[in-house]
Design a protein around this nucleic acid. Sequence first.
DNA 1: TTCCGTGCAAAGTCTTTGCATGGCC
DNA 2: GGCCATGCAAAGACTTTGCACGGAA
Lengths: 150, 150
Amino acid sequence: MEKHEIIFETYLNHKGLKYTLPRKLILETVFDLHMHFDAEQLYDLIRNISRSVSRATVYRTIPLLEEAGLIQRSLRNEARDTFEHILGHPSHAHWVCKACGVVVETDMRDVEMLLQDKSRAGNFTINNINLQISGWCRKCQRRAHEPYRC
Amino acid sequence: MEKHEIIFETYLNHKGLKYTLPRKLILETVFDLHMHFDAEQLYDLIRNISRSVSRATVYRTIPLLEEAGLIQRSLRNEARDTFEHILGHPSHAHWVCKACGVVVETDMRDVEMLLQDKSRAGNFTINNINLQISGWCRKCQRRAHEPYRC
DNA sequence: TTCCGTGCAAAGTCTTTGCATGGCC
DNA sequence: GGCCATGCAAAGACTTTGCACGGAA
């Protein structure tokens, strides 16, 4: 049994809930997926595996995964809430290009150390960090210097 | 005329759009408000001033303010998109307590400098930075050490 | 028996859009 | 006239919920 499964099952037990097949399928799909996702994408992927998981269950399971510390809310894409799994995923920043939309992730352990210091000073216990930088990527640089991109 | 007005009007002109009264009221309300807001709150506030601005206009103006670089999307609160104005507002981090929901802002110019270095290395032009740290505040510390908050 | 889980469809909430009107150049 | 702005109401897009059935302890 993989680590994320153990965590999820432990979490569910603590809450008096059960590690059922639909929940198992959702968890596995999330951890097979090495990218951001939204509820609909998750639902589609699971549908490919099994017809027996409903959209409602997907929506109901997402907050559980969040509470268990396995996924976190991420950049909002268009109108949809998006998430990413965070187990064994070192802290990273998202650099989002406002012109072409490309998202690049970079390590941010240095930033994290800085924040850990601050959190000690402020008596705050960090659970997770979400750092998003928007601007213009190398390719779109030129456009960034125009007054307003039209 | 205040700085944000000049910026907005200039932006609108560049796009061939007009700095109308509803847009003026919305802009002013946003800059009078020193906190995060969502479309509905903004609409309510403007309603107190004038009956003559519709919800649709508020929703249509928000993306313009965003494009003009005057506001930015922020933490998503419940189901609503939220924003904050960013002119003359030094970069700051949001510390969000997962237990009580309190949000504290702190300076993050040091983090910003670090990121500026990285952006130069990666040939990325930063437009703005959104840093959100979730965890538990001083008061809710104890709960943070329980296995799962119920 | 009791409590939890799930699917389905309906309801809800926030946001976007179509259309007709009205103003400005 | 041509273009843009706006209100209103309708439509859309996601997400949440009510309800009834089914299953495990």
